[in-house]
Design a protein around this nucleic acid. Structure first.
Lengths: 233, 233
DNA sequence: CGTTCAATTGACTCGGTTCAAACGCCGTGG
DNA sequence: CCACGGCGTTTGAACCGAGTCAATTGAACG
C-alpha cells in the first residue's frame, strides 16, 4: 500500500483523474517495488500476473526469437503503464534499463478495478491508443529508414521524452541529456548492430550536429539538422 | 442508419456485447458505406473525423516519409475497427486493398457514445491491446527477421486470419487461400522490395513447402515447415 | 493476336553485418 | 604514482543479403 497523494507521477499516470476515494482504494491494492538495473519484471510468454505504473527509472519491453535475436519493442519512462491487462500471458519481457521504482498490482485485481471504474479504463484506453500510434511510427522506422535516419530519430525521441518528463537531471536542458541505454540496447531498439550504431553516431558527431562528451551523454547542437536527418514522421 | 441485428460481423465487431437498445442507438448514428479498391478513407495527418467497423473487404493502414517511402503498419479485416478515437488527427492513412463495406461513425459522435457505454469502451480497449501486441510482434519481424522469415510469417498470419474469419471463400480450407494484396503491398508490409518478395516466394515454392497456382493464390503444403521458416515468436 | 501490367529473373551494387583488432576510460593493486 | 585488466566502444577490412536497375515472362483483356 502506497500513499498515492504524494506520488511523483500522480498527475501523469493513469491514476490521475480518479477521485480521492478511488485513489485510496486503488492505492490499497498496489505496492511500491524497486527493480534493479538489468532485472526482469515480466518474462515473455509467462502468465501476465502483474501490471504496474513506473514511478522512476527506465525499462525496456522486448521480444526474442528462438535463436536469441532480441528486438526492443518499447521503452518505458516514469508515469508510463506496464503489463498486459485483460490478457492471459505477456507477449514481451519487461526489464529495467536503470534502477527503477514501480507501483505494482496483481493483474486480476487491477482488471477488476478497471472494469468497475470507467474513468480509469478510459485513461488506459487513451494511453494504449498512444502506444499503438508510437509502435506504428516505429514500424516505419524499422521497415523503411536508413541507419542514419534511425539514429537521428531515436535521439530526437529520447530528448523529447526526457525533457517532457523533467528527467534530464539538474542543469540539463532539452538539448543535453543522458542516454538511458548502452549501444547494444540502442541497436536492439533500432534493428541495427552495435557497430552500425557506433559508426553512425560518429558520423553525425563529425558533421557537428551533435556532441558526445562521454559514452552516455548527448548534446544536440543543431536540432533542426537532426530533425532533417530523421526524415519526417 | 443500418440494421445492426442483421450485420454479418454482429458477433465479432466491437458492437457485440451491446444490449439490443444500445445497438439500436449506436446503429442510428452510423451508416454503411462502400469503399472501392484503392480508395483512401482517411489520410495520414488529416483530422480524424471518422471511425468505422469493417463489414467486408480488406484495408491497409500506412504511413509515409516525406520522400515517398511507404510502410504498411496494419492490415484490417472484417469485424476489425478502424480510425483513431479520442485523438485529433490520424497518424496513418486507411486505404482499401479490395472493395470493402464499412460502417462509419463521426468520430466525435462515436467518442461520446463510447464514453457513455463502458462495455463498448472495454471492447475497444481489448481490441486496441491486441492490436498493440500484434504491432510489437511486427516490430520484431521488421527489426530482426530475414527476408525468408518475413515471407513465411506473413503467409502464416494471413492464412490464420482468413480462416478464423471464414473469408477464404467456398471450397477453401486453412491451407489454401487468396492473398488480399499484391506483391508491392506485401513488400510494404514486410519492409522489403517487390523483387525480394518475389524471389523468396519462388524459393519457398521450389522447396515444396507452398504452391502458387496463380499470383494471388497460395497453397500451404507443409505448414510445420513454413512455421519453422517463420522462426517462432 | 497485340497490348498492358504485374510478376519474375538476372546482373550488379551497396548499406549494413561480421569478424577482428585497437582504443580509452576506470578501478585495482603493486 | 603508475602498470595492469576489464569492458564498453570505436575503428578497420572483408563479406553478404537485400536493393537497384533492367530485361523477360506470362496472364488477362480488348
Amino acid at each position: 500500500m502506497s500513499d498515492c497523494a504524494q506520488c511523483v507521477v500522480r498527475n501523469r499516470a493513469i491514476c490521475s483523474g480518479l477521485s480521492p476515494e478511488e485513489l485510496l482504494a486503488l492505492g490499497q491494492k498496489g505496492r511500491k517495488q524497486t527493480v534493479k538495473r538489468g532485472q526482469t519484471l515480466v518474462w515473455e510468454g509467462d502468465d501476465s500476473l502483474v501490471v504496474a505504473n513506473v514511478i522512476s527509472g527506465v525499462l525496456k519491453l522486448s521480444v526474442s526469437t528462438a535463436d536469441g535475436r532480441e528486438q526492443i519493442v518499447g521503452i518505458v519512462f516514469p508515469s508510463d503503464f506496464i503489463g498486459r491487462p485483460f490478457g492471459k500471458e505477456s507477449p514481451y519481457s519487461v526489464t529495467a534499463l536503470s534502477d527503477a521504482e514501480v507501483c505494482v498490482f496483481h493483474r486480476s485485481t487491477f482488471d477488476q478495478f478497471a472494469r468497475e471504474h470507467p474513468e480509469l479504463q478510459h485513461k488506459l484506453l487513451q494511453r494504449t491508443l498512444i502506444e499503438l500510434d508510437e509502435a506504428r511510427q516505429w514500424m516505419m522506422l524499422l521497415g523503411k529508414k536508413t541507419a542514419e535516419e534511425r539514429i537521428a530519430t531515436l535521439l530526437i525521441r529520447i530528448s523529447e521524452r526526457l525533457s517532457a518528463d523533467g528527467c534530464t537531471g539538474p542543469l540539463l536542458n532539452l538539448d543535453e541529456f543522458e542516454l538511458p541505454m548502452d549501444r547494444q540496447q540502442m541497436a536492439d531498439i533500432l534493428g541495427l548492430t552495435i557497430e552500425t550504431v557506433s559508426r553512425q553516431l560518429t558520423r553525425i558527431k563529425s558533421s557537428g550536429v551533435i556532441a558526445l562528451p562521454d559514452r552516455r551523454r548527448v548534446v544536440i547542437h543543431d536540432r533542426q539538422a537532426l530533425l532533417d536527418l530523421a526524415e519526417a514522421a
